[in-house]
């Protein structure tokens, strides 16, 4: 099965659409002004290729992604702001097109939940340590501490721990 270059080239061309290759960096698409191009690329990473399997238009090689890139680049070149461009895309494709959901009341749960978990955990930790302070008002002597460690551990700690206990 010796490959003939013509056959190979045709096969590669037909199969090219299957392959995703950081399509946005294609030199034939680029804007002349590097600052504008950088802005467009940053925007691409936040915009979903709506027909693809969870890819941004920066990564996708699909035709629609190419169309969207062209559109965004034109708007960047025309001097529209990022917010205007995003709004325009949402008007056309819905919120689905944004890989970064907007900060809005409807998305409040999404954006605040991570930090609520931290606050909850912090409160739980404070409550736990406060409770332990009530339980244990007096300082233990080193002898008592060692005995307590033996009792709660119910095994003899390894040697390094005995020595490390002497550390300030």
């Amino acid at each position: 099965m010796k490959p003939h270059l013509a056959v190979l080239t045709r096969a590669l061309a037909t199969a090219a659409a299957l392959l995703c290759l950081a399509a946005a960096s294609d030199p034939s698409e680029r804007l002349k002004d590097p600052a504008q191009e950088a802005r467009a690329r940053a925007l691409f990473q936040e915009i979903r290729c709506v027909v693809c399997q969870n890819e941004s238009i920066d990564d996708s090689d699909a035709d629609l992604a190419g169309d969207l890139r062209r559109m965004v680049r034109e708007e960047v070149a025309a001097g529209r702001t990022d917010a205007q461009i995003r709004t325009g895309l949402v008007d056309r494709y819905g919120e689905f097109v944004l890989l970064k959901p907007r900060f809005s009341w409807t998305n409040a749960a999404l954006w605040t939940a991570p930090f609520l978990v931290v606050i909850l955990g912090g409160v739980a930790l404070l409550v736990a340590t406060r409770r332990s302070r009530q339980v244990q008002p007096a300082e233990l002597t080193p002898e008592e501490e060692a005995r307590l460690a033996r009792l709660t551990d119910n095994t003899v700690p390894p040697v390094d721990e005995i020595t490390s206990k002497g550390r300030p």
Binding site: E46, S56, V97, L98, L99, P114
Partner: peptide, 16 residues
């Protein structure tokens, strides 16, 4: 809500 939304890399970069 019956809406389609996306949560992608930018969200995780800002929270995680």
């Amino acid at each position: 809500r019956g809406d389609a939304v996306s949560v992608g890399a930018p969200y995780f970069n800002l929270t995680f």
